[in-house]
Design a protein around this nucleic acid. Structure first.
Length: 636
RNA sequence: GCCGGCGUAGCUCAAUGGUAGAGCACCUGUUUUGUAAACAGGCGGUUGCGGGUUCGAAUCCCAUCGCCGGCUCCA
């Protein structure tokens, strides 16, 4: 345990000590340190409030001042049971004791009157813990399972010094200003309207500029890398997803199917309970089941889903993924090995039923657009194609100056059987992913259990301003769908062969990526992405006409510019442009009008002096063309 | 979905059972401005929505929708 973790862990014991003084009947579960602080999970009939938190914190201060030594005591399993029972903490602590493997040491730590089952380690005296703060109360399931009782989790943080604590709290406060939900509102980038629906993003004109620029950017890269762009509809027949296996496997996280009119009329005529309707929507024909099961070599469609044809209901689904549609484009023509790889790309909008409590601004939504593509290739081509996909992700991240991410190679969970496909294919795919990740030149972690059910993947994960991790770009190898859809190509031997699919999305989703990007730049977008690139500010009404003249020249060159015609003093107009985070403000007075020039004020560098209009135009056009990053804002 | 908190003008917030208010934004006028806020006036509300208690509800109660923090989930 690091010294800081030790401190925080001790703080959580002090929290428990104080808590039991105030609520002696509280049943404790577990109280570990975290990346940013500590928590303790507690079962207590009384619902803790913010006022209670203040009381507990005051009591914690007393415990700290009592300067209690932390004493370690090693005991036998039997003694441990006795201690736990004597303290009335058997409800959760006996279970935690049982988690300790036979043969391992069992220890308690005591400070003052409090004693807790704990491996340690701790600070030596409670007075070491002097810079701490309780932050919030939240529900948390015992052992993280929603089947168990929900406990109250008390979150807090602690640092070695009061200055560090104050610094951390200040940093959290600052982070709020960069939150994409706040900036999205302030800069009018997107809105979510409750009448439209939770988790459904409305891209306003400003946000749409950013999205459009990003799409143009990636489209240029796709053309260089030999992709073909396609368009597909937002819905597809239920049967399509029964073949792919997405329905009903992911039914819980999909929108309810749209039942076809004919089917709807039939069930209204015949009468049909809700439960029966669900069963009939899930069901597949014996014909389809036989085909898919034969191809996969396993019972992927189980007997209880098979129904006679006249019991089936037909309908459409909002697409939860783009792959089935792209597969149908691929399979609409015969392919030779000479055609491969086929790379089909689309900004494809998909819909998923995320739990209401999970929705979050633009980063977790119910409808989002993936910068998706599916590559159909031979097995020999997989490794090379993976490298191409990763280089695309790198280009994206480099261009945007995003270096604060981690890479995760998602592998099979060796203890699970949810994965489809032959072991040899998995071995090959996993090693291809691992080798490809190595070429990135950044550290990556291999995480068993993080693979998709159809194949391993390489994910790029970033943190938002309040430390939550989000998966952005992803590259996935898939041996499963080509089998389910019976995809083939003719090999050099004139025999049919099975292609391998790669799914990849460098941004992941446009919504999530833009959300993270807003926070990454704190709203100070580089010129090429800025919704408004130039603000023209006449010093008085006398130079408005000159402003109109400059405006039309900028617009003709394709620069996004506006003219501030408000009847305000110069300072007020500059202030407005600053608040709206426009990268360049051009001040126009009599001198400038006379010389066909502009006085340039940059968001990053302040007043840069007077230059001819043409010179400014050439410079900004070059920055836009190169997609240059803005210089960091000078500290205020 | 679960636990807890919150919901007042476009935005930030005030009003603790007794006439819904301020600043900014917006509109009009005066001012004609040189690098982060000129001055004055005006517009703007069924206090998220629906019920209830009360002589009287933004305020108390119930229900519902949404938002925030966590938990669970995430092809």
């Amino acid at each position: 345990m690091t010294p800081l973790e030790e401190l925080r862990h001790s703080a959580s014991h002090i929290l428990a000590t104080a808590l039991l003084r105030i609520y002696p009947d509280a049943k404790l579960d577990i109280g570990p340190p975290t990346d940013t602080g500590f928590y303790y999970d507690v079962d207590l009939d009384h619902k803790l409030t913010a006022e209670d938190l203040a009381k507990i914190e005051a009591e914690m201060k007393k415990v700290a001042e009592e300067n209690q030594p932390f004493l370690r005591k090693e005991v036998s399993r039997e003694e441990a049971v006795e201690i736990i029972k004597s303290r009335g903490q058997e409800r959760y602590k006996l279970g935690r004791l049982a988690d300790i493997p036979e043969g391992e040491k069992i220890s308690f730590y005591q400070n003052g009157e409090f004693m807790d089952l704990c491996a340690g380690t701790h600070v030596r005296y409670s007075s070491k813990v002097k810079a701490f703060k309780l932050l919030s109360i939240a529900g948390a399931y015992h052992r993280g399972s929603e089947k168990n009782k929900q406990l109250q989790r008390i979150y807090g943080t602690a640092f070695a010094t009061k200055d560090e604590l104050a610094g951390y709290l200040e940093q959290m406060e600052q982070a709020k200003h960069r939150d994409h939900r706040k900036l999205g509102k302030d800069l009018r980038l997107f809105v979510i309207d409750e009448d439209v629906g939770q988790g459904l993003i409305l891209w306003t004109p400003n946000g749409s500029v950013i999205r459009q620029e990003l799409q143009t950017f990636i489209s240029e890269e796709l053309r260089k890398q030999g992709y073909s762009q396609v368009f597909t509809p937002h819905i597809g027949k239920l049967e399509l997803y029964k073949i792919s296996g997405h329905f009903p496997y992911y039914k819980e996280s999909q929108f309810t199917p749209v039942v076809e009119n004919e089917s709807l009329a039939r069930i209204l005529r015949e009468g049909c309970s809700c439960a029966e309707m669900v069963v009939r929507l899930d069901a597949v024909s014996s014909h389809l089941a036989a085909q898919v099961n034969a191809r996969t070599g396993t019972e992927t469609i189980t007997a209880d889903r098979v129904k006679p044809d006249d019991q089936l209901l037909d309908g459409f689904m909002l697409k939860p993924m783009n792959c089935p549609h792209h597969i149908k484009i691929f399979s609409s023509q015969p392919h030779s090995y000479r055609d491969l790889p086929v790379r089909l790309a689309e900004f494809g909008t998909v819909y998923r039923w995320e739990q209401s409590g999970e929705l979050n601004g633009m980063t977790r939504v119910r409808g989002f657009t993936q910068d998706d593509a599916h590559l159909f290739c031979t097995e020999d081509q997989v490794a090379g194609e993976l490298l191409g996909c990763l280089s695309l992700v790198k280009i994206v991240l480099n261009t945007l100056g995003m270096s604060d991410y981690r890479v995760r190679v998602g592998l099979r969970d060796p203890d699970s059987n949810k994965y489809t496909g032959a072991k040899e294919n998995w071995d090959k795919a996993e090693s291809a992913c691992r080798e490809a990740a190595k070429t990135l030149g950044v550290a990556f972690t291999e995480e068993p259990g993080e693979a998709a059910f159809y194949g391993p993947k390489i994910d790029f994960v970033v943190k938002d301003v309040i430390g939550r991790e989000w998966q952005l770009g992803t590259v996935q190898v898939d041996y499963n769908l080509p089998i389910r859809f019976d995809l083939t190509y003719s090999g050099a031997d004139n025999q049919p062969h099975r292609p391998v699919m790669i799914h990849r999305a460098p941004f992941g989703s446009m919504e999530r990526f833009c959300g993270v990007l807003i926070e990454h730049f704190g709203g100070d977008f580089p010129v090429w992405l800025s919704p408004e690139q130039v603000r023209l500010v006449p010093i008085s009404e006398r130079t408005i006409d000159y402003g109109r003249d400059v405006l039309s020249r900028l617009k003709a060159a394709g620069v996004r510019a506006t003219l501030d015609e408000h009847n305000d003093k110069l300072g007020a107009k500059i202030r407005r442009a600053e608040i709206e985070k426009v990268p360049y403000t051009l001040v126009l007075g009599a001198k400038e009008a006379e010389a066909q020039s502009v006085s340039v004020r940059s968001r990053a560098r302040g007043d840069e002096g007077i230059v001819p209009v043409d010179q400014f135009l050439a410079k900004i056009l070059e920055d836009i063309r190169l997609r240059s990053l803005s210089e960091k804002k000078k500290p205020a």
